[in-house]
Simulated assay, not measured.
Amino acid sequence: MPALSRRHTAVLTALVAGAVLWTSSPASANNGYGGGGAQDSSPDKDSSANSDGQNLGVAVKINTDNNAKGPSAGPLAPVSNWKPPACWYAPTYSPAQFKKIEEHTWSLESTGYQWDAEQRSKYADGKPYKDFNKAKAGKGFWWTSDVNRSFPPGWDSCNKETFWVDTGKTPPVAAGQAAATPEDLAHIAYGFVHVPDTKVTLAPSGATKVNLPTWAWLNKADFKPVSVTATLANYHISSTVTATPQSLKLEPGTSDAEMFPSSGVCPLVNDSIGTPYAKGDANKTPPCGVTYLRASGSNGPFQLKATITWKITWTGTGVPGGTLPDGSFGTTQDVTVDEIQAINR
């Protein structure tokens, strides 16, 4: 993990705690910075609190209920140079909330006199902020950084200390690092999408044979669209990113193989990738599969790689949405090939 300042570490801890405890209700908003009529919320009425009873603001909530589950599920790799953001800034605290959490931190005296004095000067004593901007309650939010822990490289690019942004103003951060529009939230949600393992079913199911077509397909029930929703509580906007399987690419693990189709790319047809082998298909060419031209031998089984390409679409509050770069996820599996020229099925 990159080195983080004490302030940055404290903020990350607060955001994680707040995200676990907060729930939202849908509301309408426009899609500009500060849209949605953000309102100041007294921490005394906020139901989100950590173990010390301190009420916390909430930045972006990620809902992964419709994600793929299980230890073999994994994140998508965009097929282009684009990447989902590893970190971002979001409106997190009202003035009252930020004051309460800061004063609690200072009361613990855990960050040292000098650090606390610098923070008091900055946020409470008018250099540049006075009394945590309580005079601007309901007219903006304190912004902090958050991270996607799936993308450790890049965490340290969001090292700006907590700052204030008036409602309707563009936050003073790098392009692509402000979570304030539905499209921003879609980019963030992309990074949290997990899809199922790509292990394919093969026929023959055990060891296959040299020059024998091996059928390959995916379990239709396992390959349904998955989705993740990112919600920005303080602006009442959200976006849902949906990943839909499009095609399967097979790589046999050796150049001594013939692919079906010849490209090795099996398209999605009628909600299915590949066709299950059925009795009587022995003399047919599989629509998706491989024929190995030599035995795997003493070096061990071939590593058949199966990679799914997923189409990515998104919809957001008050906007039609669109598409994001396709993503892919692949795994390998062992295939043993025996030196037998023909068998009866």
Rank of each mutant, 00 (worst) to 15 (best):
L56R: 09
L56P: 07
G57N: 06
G57C: 09
G57K: 05
V58P: 01
K61C: 01
I62A: 12
I62Q: 09
I62N: 11
N63H: 01
T64A: 02
T64E: 03
N66W: 00
N66K: 11
N67I: 01
A68T: 01
G70E: 12
G70S: 08
G70K: 06
P71G: 03
S72E: 15
G74C: 10
G74K: 05
L76F: 04
L76M: 06
L76P: 02
A77D: 15
P78E: 12
P78D: 12
V79L: 08
V79Y: 03
V79P: 07
V79I: 14
S80M: 04
S80Y: 06
N81I: 06
N81G: 13
W82Q: 13
W82K: 12
K83V: 04
K83L: 05
P84M: 11
P85V: 07
A86T: 02
C87I: 04
C87Y: 02
W88Y: 10
W88Q: 01
A90C: 07
P91S: 01
P91Q: 00
Y93S: 02
Y93E: 08
P95C: 09
P95G: 06
P95E: 05
A96G: 15
A96L: 03
Q97K: 06
K99Q: 15
K99G: 00
K100S: 07
K100V: 04
K100C: 00
I101H: 10
E103R: 11
E103I: 01
H104N: 15
H104R: 12
H104F: 15
T105Q: 12
T105W: 09
S107F: 13
L108S: 14
L108V: 12
L108D: 11
L108R: 15
E109A: 15
E109G: 02
S110A: 15
S110C: 03
S110Y: 04
S110M: 09
T111M: 14
T111N: 13
G112A: 08
Y113Q: 14
Y113A: 14
Q114P: 00
Q114D: 14
Q114M: 09
Q114T: 15
